[in-house]
C-alpha cells in the first residue's frame, strides 16, 4: 500500500472515532459542572451588590438557568448541533466570539512552546545519548532535572526579573505593543518578542521530559542489530545517529508530545496569568470564578478538540515515521 493511502486510512479511522468521544465529553462536562455550587446569576447578583431575589430569578430565567438540568443539556446540545456555543451571561457576547478572540493567542503560545520543547529536548537528548555517562550527559541531566522540578510560574517570574527588569531586553507581559500600529514583518517581530518569555517558561518543563525520553530511546535503539549493520556499511557515527537511530527513537517522544499538547492548556493558565497573556487558559480560569459555564463548556469542548486533533496528528506522524504501524 502506498504511504499516502496508508495515512488517509489512518486519518479516516481516527476522525470516525472522534465523534462519539466529543459527544461523551460534552455530556460529562455539562453534568459535572452542574455539581459545582452557585451559578452565573449568583455571581452577577453578588457583584452588583444590591440584587433582590426577584432580579436573581429574572437573571436565571433570562439565561435559562431555571430549567431542569436535562432540559438545559438538550438545549446546549441543540445549540451545538447548530454550530453555536451558546451565549455568555457575563460578557454579554456569544461564546464563540469570545473564544475566537482568545484562541489564536493560546494556540500560538502552545504550539511555539511545544516546538521549542521538542526541538531543544530532542537535540539535548541526542547529545546526552552520544556522550552517555560523560560530562555533557551529566551536565545536561542536571539542568533537565532542574527544569523538571522548578514550577513554571517561578521560572516565569525569574525570567521576567532577568530579561525584563534587569536587562530590559524583552517585555514583561502582554502579547503585542499596544498602539504601535505595526504591520507585516514588523508586527510579527513585535509579537515574537512578546512570545519568547511565556513560551520559554511553558516549554522548559517539557524540554526536560523530552530530553530524558529521547536519551533513553536513543540508547535503547543504539543496541539494536540494524545499528551494527549501519556501522558495517561504513557510515560515520553522526550519520548512524541521525539517519538510523534518531528516527527510530522519535516514536516514544511523539507519543508523549501528543499527549502533552492537551495538557499544555492547563500549564498555560499559570503562564498566561504571570505574563498577562490574553489566552484561553486565563479565560477558562475566569469563567470558573464567575460560574460562566457556557464559556467554560466552550473552552472544554475546544480543548477536547485540541486533544483529539493532537492524537490524530500523532497517529499520522507515527504512521509516517514507522511503516510497521498500520491501520488496525
Amino acid at each position: 500500500m502506498s504511504s499516502i493511502g496508508r495515512l488517509a486510512k489512518t486519518f479516516r479511522r481516527t476522525a470516525l472515532q472522534a465523534i462519539p468521544t466529543v459527544i461523551g465529553i460534552v455530556v460529562i462536562n455539562f453534568l459535572l459542572l452542574q455539581l459545582a455550587p452557585g451559578d452565573a446569576a449568583d455571581v452577577l447578583a453578588g457583584e452588583s451588590g444590591s440584587a433582590t431575589m426577584e432580579t436573581v430569578a429574572a437573571l436565571r430565567a433570562r439565561f435559562g438557568l431555571d430549567q431542569p438540568v436535562l432540559v438545559q443539556l438538550v438545549a446546549y446540545l441543540d445549540n451545538l448541533a447548530h454550530f453555536s456555543l451558546g451565549f455568555s451571561p457575563r460578557y454579554n457576547l456569544p461564546v464563540a466570539e469570545i473564544i475566537g478572540q482568545r484562541l489564536p493567542g493560546t494556540l500560538s503560545l502552545m504550539l511555539t512552546a511545544l516546538a521549542i520543547a521538542i526541538v531543544i529536548g530532542i537535540s539535548a537528548g541526542v547529545v546526552m545519548a552520544s556522550f552517555s555517562s560523560r560530562w555533557p550527559d551529566r551536565v545536561i541531566s542536571i539542568v533537565a532535572i532542574l527544569f523538571y522540578s522548578i514550577p513554571g510560574f517561578w521560572i516565569g517570574l525569574m525570567l521576567i526579573v532577568l530579561f525584563s527588569v534587569k536587562l530590559g531586553w524583552l517585555p514583561s507581559g502582554g502579547s503585542e505593543t499596544i498602539g504601535a500600529g505595526l504591520t507585516g514583518a514588523g508586527a510579527l517581530l513585535d509579537k515574537l518578542r512578546y512570545m519568547i518569555l511565556p513560551a520559554t517558561s511553558l516549554a522548559l518543563f517539557y524540554v526536560a521530559i523530552y530530553a530524558r525520553l529521547a536519551r533513553a530511546a536513543m540508547l535503547e535503539v543504539n543496541t539494536r542489530d540494524f545499528v551494527r549493520t549501519a556501522a558495517a556499511k561504513g557510515l560515520s557515527p553522526l550519520s548512524i545517529t541521525l539517519r538510523h537511530v534518531l528516527r527510530n527513537a522519535l516514536l516514544p517522544v511523539t507519543t508523549v508530545a501528543g499527549m502533552h499538547l492537551g495538557g499544555l492548556l492547563g500549564g498555560a493558565v499559570v503562564v498566561e496569568t504571570v505574563y498577562s497573556w490574553p489566552g484561553l487558559g486565563r479565560l477558562a480560569f475566569e469563567a470558573v470564578m464567575s460560574r460562566d459555564f457556557s464559556i467554560l463548556l466552550g473552552v472544554l469542548l475546544l480543548s477536547s478538540f485540541v486533544v483529539i486533533i493532537a492524537n490524530m496528528m500523532v497517529d499520522l506522524l507515527q504512521a509516517w515515521l514507522d511503516p510497521r504501524i498500520e491501520v488496525r
Binding site: T229, A232, G234, L235, R243, R324
Partner: peptide
C-alpha cells in the same frame, strides 16, 4: 577503517529479522 567497511569488506549478519532498519 570506515572507508573500507561496506566498500572493500562487507558483512552479512546472523539475524536477518533485526539487522535491517525497520523504518527505511
Amino acid at each position: 577503517m570506515r572507508h573500507h567497511r561496506g566498500r572493500d569488506i562487507a558483512m552479512v549478519f546472523q539475524e536477518p529479522m533485526t539487522s535491517l532498519n525497520p523504518v527505511m
